[in-house]
């Protein structure tokens, strides 16, 4: 699916880099622990998280992810937004909680992907 479809499914609002919404994504990972993302994730393109600091962007960047979804209506810090803009990383925020957001995307066909 496209990033735009992710936003539609989650009724999410784009925070930055909406211009990249036509990019394709196939798999996702949900976590508030960046250490776990770095430890277990491989080739996932969407990060679903409730953590809002700039290290979320850096973690996504290290893992070559292209989109971050913030759950529970959270908004990333200005520093995090600035960093994501530099990298063209799409950010969006949804009112859904982590479990619902993951479930909705999974039901719509986004997979967990291979873990390391």
């Amino acid at each position: 699916m496209t990033i735009e479809q992710v936003a539609q499914i989650l009724n999410a609002e784009f925070v930055c880099c909406e211009e990249n919404k036509h990019n394709e994504v196939h798999s996702a990972c949900g976590s508030d622990m960046m250490s776990d993302v770095l430890a277990y994730v491989k080739d996932q393109s969407v990060l679903i998280t409730g953590l809002c600091n700039p290290q979320v962007v850096r973690t996504a960047e290290m893992m070559d992810m292209v989109c971050i979804v913030f759950v529970r209506g959270k908004r990333p810090s200005d520093e995090a937004i600035a960093l994501a803009q530099q990298k063209g990383l799409v950010m969006m925020t949804t009112q859904h909680r982590m479990f619902s957001a993951c479930g909705l995307l999974y039901s719509a066909g986004l997979i967990a992907g291979e873990s390391c």
């Binding site: 508030d32 622990m33 960046m34 250490s35 776990d36 770095l38 430890a39 998280t49 953590l51 600091n53 290290q55 979320v56 973690t59």
Partner: peptide, 8 residues
């Protein structure tokens, strides 16, 4: 802050 899981 999302770190300190003992995975570093």
């Amino acid at each position: 802050l999302g770190f300190g899981a003992g995975m570093g």
